[in-house]
Amino acid sequence: MLDVALRHRFGPGGFALDVAFATAEAGVTALFGTSGCGKTTVLAAVAGLLRPQAGHVALHGTALLDTARGLCVPPERRRCAMVFQDARLFPHLSVATNLRYGLRRAPPDATGPGLEEVVALLGIGHLLGRRPGRLSGGERQRVALGRALLARPRLLLMDEPLAALDAERRAEVLPFLARLRSAANLPILYVTHALDEVDALADRLVLLQAGRVVAEGSVEALSLRTDLPLAGRRDAGALLPCTVLGHDAARGLTRLGFAGGELTVPMREEAPGTRARVRLRARDVAVATEPPRGLSTQNVLPATLAAIGEAPSPHEVFLRLRLGGSELLSRVTRDSVARLGLAPGQAVWAVVKAVTFDRSTGATG
């Protein structure tokens, strides 16, 4: 578990950071927010690259920083491995030698995956004889991840590791990051401003704005909070835990089960039984007051209108829809609410287009 409380100001009238949060024993905690909100500053303070003016950092109960006691453990003794936007590999060394450098940094008594296991995990066996200059951006990041993991850290820090990659390379690396999360069995602090990376990787979310923690909690729970800055995004909507039930190859469709029903989505690659998360964007969920007919949309789900809440636009509202043990959000105009006579407690039907499901959302187990 990582426990963080930091206060720091960069010069008179400069940017001020005042944050406090905690992570679980293992899994990914994403620091999320727009550029300049303080995400990387937090990471630097946890790594020991920045000494804040006040605060503490403790990892598994061991203090790494406690300004009240004058304690600040040097970065090299914190056993925090960091992965940056640029891979920062040694250009004159082969991939294999870069990886072994990570192993040499591991304490003699530290346990963790070995070289062969990491190479297999990240799919980089065919790259071992190459030098970084002959690798793609995605390949370099996979090697950087391997080197960090081989150092057998107690905490893995990732500072927007996919930000410098194009969409194709990002899609290549994301599945390996998901594998790494499961195999590492240690806390990972992941900085990003990309919501699809949060969806694919994060267990918990710490939402930052202007140097402050706006909210923290599970990704699924925060996706339903219409009072947060996330609600103003075009991709705002519920993140729904699902299980792959089966595929219909002839029709190019996959069935997903969730606590409240089933969804039909474009064909996915995960095997039946795989757990997955899918973001249902609020703007892509319509409602009907009676069972609709003659639609191309296959996902028409009975629901209860639980609440009507404010949206960032004065002309729109969020509808909170309850489907069994799950909830969805729908973003509609105020005119639609008045025209349909919508009210909390009313039985409705949620209409979701299959084509709105995002293939980039990663498996969760």
Results as ranks from 00 to 15, higher is better:
residue 4 V to G: 02
residue 13 G to C: 08
residue 16 A to L: 13
residue 22 A to M: 02
residue 23 T to M: 04
residue 28 V to R: 00
residue 30 A to G: 02
residue 33 G to D: 04
residue 37 C to P: 03
residue 38 G to H: 04
residue 38 G to N: 05
residue 41 T to I: 12
residue 44 A to N: 15
residue 45 A to E: 09
residue 52 P to C: 07
residue 56 H to M: 11
residue 57 V to C: 00
residue 57 V to F: 03
residue 58 A to S: 15
residue 62 T to D: 14
residue 66 D to F: 05
residue 71 L to Y: 07
residue 78 R to C: 00
residue 81 A to L: 01
residue 88 R to V: 11
residue 90 F to W: 15
residue 96 A to S: 11
residue 101 Y to E: 11
residue 102 G to T: 04
residue 106 A to H: 09
residue 108 P to K: 14
residue 110 A to T: 09
residue 111 T to S: 12
residue 112 G to Q: 06
residue 116 E to A: 15
residue 117 E to F: 04
residue 123 G to L: 02
residue 126 H to S: 15
residue 127 L to P: 01
residue 128 L to F: 11
residue 128 L to M: 12
residue 138 G to E: 02
residue 142 R to N: 06
residue 147 R to N: 03
residue 152 R to S: 00
residue 155 L to R: 00
residue 168 E to I: 13
residue 171 A to N: 13
residue 175 P to I: 05
residue 176 F to E: 09
residue 181 R to P: 00
residue 182 S to H: 14
residue 183 A to L: 01
residue 184 A to L: 15
residue 186 L to W: 04
residue 186 L to N: 02
residue 190 Y to N: 01
residue 193 H to A: 13
residue 193 H to V: 12
residue 197 E to F: 06
residue 201 L to T: 05
residue 203 D to E: 10
residue 205 L to T: 08
residue 210 A to W: 07
residue 222 L to K: 10
residue 225 R to T: 09
residue 228 L to Q: 03
residue 231 A to F: 03
residue 232 G to I: 03
residue 232 G to F: 06
residue 243 T to W: 08
residue 243 T to I: 13
residue 243 T to H: 08
residue 248 D to G: 10
residue 250 A to H: 08
residue 256 L to S: 04
residue 264 T to H: 11
residue 266 P to W: 04
residue 267 M to P: 09
residue 269 E to C: 12
residue 270 E to M: 06
residue 272 P to N: 12
residue 279 R to K: 15
residue 280 L to E: 05
residue 283 R to C: 10
residue 284 D to Y: 13
residue 285 V to N: 02
residue 298 Q to D: 08
residue 306 A to V: 09
residue 307 A to S: 14
residue 317 V to C: 11
residue 320 R to Y: 14
residue 322 R to H: 09
residue 330 S to M: 04
residue 341 G to E: 07
residue 346 Q to S: 11
residue 349 W to D: 06
residue 350 A to P: 02
residue 352 V to I: 15
